[in-house]
């Protein structure tokens, strides 16, 4: 809509895409490394925004728009809301990020995963160039084209998303609801406090 492919110089496009890509990765790294949940949310926000820039460069401005709308507008806010609700940042930052899985293992494993995938894409697959401009322009990424496809070819999926959101809403509201009628805390459960303490002690023992 605003930025259509080809209306800006190719070099600038690729530069922008590289920058946005690096930004997205940086945001994701912030998520992983941030000591506090609040910063992790901000990292997600960076990633989301950078990705939407990529979408625009990929000639998909509608999805970029929706991405900003849903993620920046709803998901991130929701996360922030929960962070505030649980008052995490003020009282306790994650004391040690060292979880049960060692750093080396986790990084090694995910890196191996990434390398395998990238090798597959770079060295083994010969991908086609982006569809010839003729095709690309013949299906302008207007709201109309998407809308028509959505409601013609993906009608069932569209309805299914509605059902999904209904189910998610029911589940979320029910689970997060504080005071159910006729409910009482399960007496069979152990008292949370000592349990948590024991777990913390166990975790502490493992750390060194």
């Amino acid at each position: 809509m605003i930025v259509l492919e080809g209306s800006i110089p190719a070099a600038l496009t690729s530069l922008l895409s590289v920058v946005a890509g690096l930004g997205a990765i940086a945001g994701a790294l912030v998520v992983v490394t941030a000591p506090r949940a609040f910063r992790a949310v901000m990292g997600l926000l960076i990633t989301v925004v950078c990705l939407s820039i990529e979408y625009v460069l990929l000639a998909a401005p509608v999805i970029a728009f929706i991405q900003i709308l849903v993620y920046a507008g709803a998901v991130v806010v929701l996360f922030l809301f929960v962070v505030m609700l649980l008052d995490l940042d003020g009282s306790r930052a994650e004391s040690s990020s060292r979880g049960p899985v060692r750093w080396e293992w986790a990084i090694g494993g995910t890196a191996a995963f990434f390398m395998i995938g990238v090798c597959g894409i770079y060295y083994l697959a010969k991908l086609p160039a982006p569809a010839a401009p003729a095709v690309s322009e013949a299906t302008p990424d207007g709201v109309q084209a998407i809308g028509v496809t959505l409601l013609r070819d993906y009608l069932v999926s569209f309805e299914a998303v509605a059902v999904f959101l209904l189910a998610a809403a029911v589940a979320a509201i029910y689970v997060a609801h504080a005071h159910g009628r006729g409910e009482k805390a399960d007496p069979a459960e152990p008292d949370p406090a000592p349990e948590a303490g024991a777990a913390g002690a166990a975790a502490g023992k493992e750390a060194p």
Partner: peptide, 13 residues
């Protein structure tokens, strides 16, 4: 997603 909700049905446990 329905199964997640159902699993947490006894939300006090």
């Amino acid at each position: 997603v329905a199964a997640y909700g159902l699993t947490a049905l006894t939300r006090r446990r």
